[in-house]
Design a binder for these strands. Structure first.
Lengths: 135, 135
DNA sequence: CCAGTAGCTTACTTCAAAGTGGGTACTTTC
DNA sequence: GAAAGTACCCACTTTGAAGTAAGCTACTGG
């Protein structure tokens, strides 16, 4: 005798189906969180313009600590977005750049960053209206 | 005699200059964080497809709690991204939709969400290589 | 008349993200 | 010979984001 297992009906799992960020257990959600993380966005956007050394990146992305920058870069490197090129010289020199995959992601977040900068006025106007309406 | 003040040289402030997410004190950074927040991304992406009621949205965005959904929607509403339409009926009915401004933002994050889903395989391959390289 | 519903709010708790400050190894500059 | 640059790592602490659970209103169906 045989046992049949229904794979297609249940929408709770992601096995064998398209990744979907709306499903809590889908790994795509974690990747999305890496890309949209506080420092991840800024690092990717910066690296889209050119490659950076560690300290250079730290000075460019205002307010990031060494720990968080290192951690963010490692996460992005592991996900295949960032390429780390450590030259065996003294003092150490490490260049960070985007992989082709990372470039695709970076283009999206770069667009988002520039859009926010462009539309900041509109947001602040909306906030003024919102705050005034309930005061 | 006259006093001249150099406004352009200092890059530390944002007064009178273009908003820049790389500067820690720039308000644009906060807006970017709202848009790229854990639930903000998913809510905006969902609302791009159609308008939703509260509970509907809660069921659509897997894993979000009532508290976090309410909080996220309020933040997005205050920033002028989301329109809240509360009908004075019983039981209460509240419809959420995107404003024109919100639609612009949502298009970006929607693109990001779909991209992550499309490229998840590539990310997992990269992770495999990364993990194997240091084991 | 008690349970259930919708869309929240509030209080309490938990846990991970982020900050702080130290150390490393070696070199160049003051 | 002390300080600073370089790219980190590690331990510890703090903060705040998020989860949990309850309450709320005003009605409807059983």
């Amino acid at each position: 005798m045989s046992v049949s297992v229904d794979v297609s009906a249940t929408s709770g799992d992601t096995a064998g189906r398209h990744p979907n960020v709306n499903q809590p257990m889908c790994p795509s959600r974690l990747v999305l969180e890496h890309v949209t993380s506080r420092w991840g966005v800024l690092v990717l956007a910066a690296l889209l313009e050119r490659s950076y050394r560690f300290g250079e990146l730290r000075r460019t992305v205002g307010g990031v600590s060494e720990k968080m920058l290192a951690q963010t870069l490692q996460t992005l490197e592991r996900d295949g977005f960032v390429h780390r090129d450590a030259k065996p010289v003294i003092p150490p020199r490490v260049d960070y750049s985007l992989t082709p995959l990372g470039r695709e992601a970076a283009e999206q977040v770069w667009g988002l960053a520039r859009w926010v900068e462009r539309r900041l006025d509109a947001v602040e106007t909306a906030r003024g209206a919102y705050d005034e309406a309930r005061s």
